[in-house]
Simulated scan of single mutants.
Amino acid sequence: MKPFTFDQIPLMMNKIHDKLEHLEKLILRISNTKEDKEDILNIEEASKLLNLSVSTIYSKVSRREIPVNKQGKRIYFYRHELMQWIKSGRIKTYLEIKNDIEKRSKI
């Protein structure tokens, strides 16, 4: 590594900051992925996560609208499955729809 001048310090600090920010994002993504896949929730925890009442969750389970795991009379949820379920209901923006149409017309 070459020595740098005093005038280069702000530039070097920005580079260091950007690299640290990138590393932090990578670490958070890796740790969240591991935790999310292993997190098992009971109905009360799922209720808090989804901001739905317990009775609403039971209704969705009985209508098979929500991913669930059953052991005997107890039901459990995987956090990552619930998050995927939430994301599956996402409504596309006008721009996303327009881009999809343009991609299809090119094919």
Rank of each mutant, 00 (worst) to 15 (best):
K15P: 02
K25T: 11
K106T: 05
K19V: 07
L50V: 01
Q84Y: 05
F4W: 06
I27D: 03
E102Q: 11
K37P: 03
N51P: 02
N32V: 00
L49T: 02
D18M: 10
K25G: 05
A46V: 08
F4G: 07
T56V: 01
L95D: 12
S88Y: 00
I30Q: 13
R63Q: 13
E81T: 13
S47Q: 10
P10M: 07
I97K: 11
T93N: 03
D39A: 15
M13C: 12
L82H: 07
P3Y: 09
I107E: 10
T5M: 02
A46Y: 12
K87A: 15
R64E: 12
E44P: 06
E38N: 15
S31N: 14
R90N: 09
L52R: 07
L82V: 01
K92D: 04
E45S: 12
Y94M: 00
L41R: 01
K106R: 06
I27K: 14
E35Q: 11
I43W: 06
K92S: 07
K2W: 03
K25C: 07
L11K: 10
M83N: 07
I9R: 05
I43H: 07
N99E: 13
R79N: 01
R63G: 04
E96L: 02
K37Y: 11
K2Q: 14
M12L: 13
L20C: 13
R74P: 05
W85Q: 10
Q71M: 12
S62D: 08
S53Y: 02
K106Y: 05
E81N: 12
L52W: 09
F4K: 10
H17L: 11
L11N: 09
E44Y: 05
F77W: 00
N69Q: 11
I86P: 00
E65Y: 03
E45W: 02
Y78S: 04
L20I: 15
L95M: 09
Y58A: 02
D39F: 06
S55N: 09
T33E: 15
E102C: 03
L23N: 12
T56I: 00
L20H: 06
K25I: 01
K34S: 06
F6N: 13
H80R: 07
N32Q: 11
T56K: 12
D7A: 15
E38F: 08
S62I: 00
S88K: 06
L28P: 05
E35H: 08
G89N: 11
Y76I: 08
Y58W: 11
E102I: 15
K73Q: 13
G89I: 00
K15A: 14
K92R: 05
R64H: 14
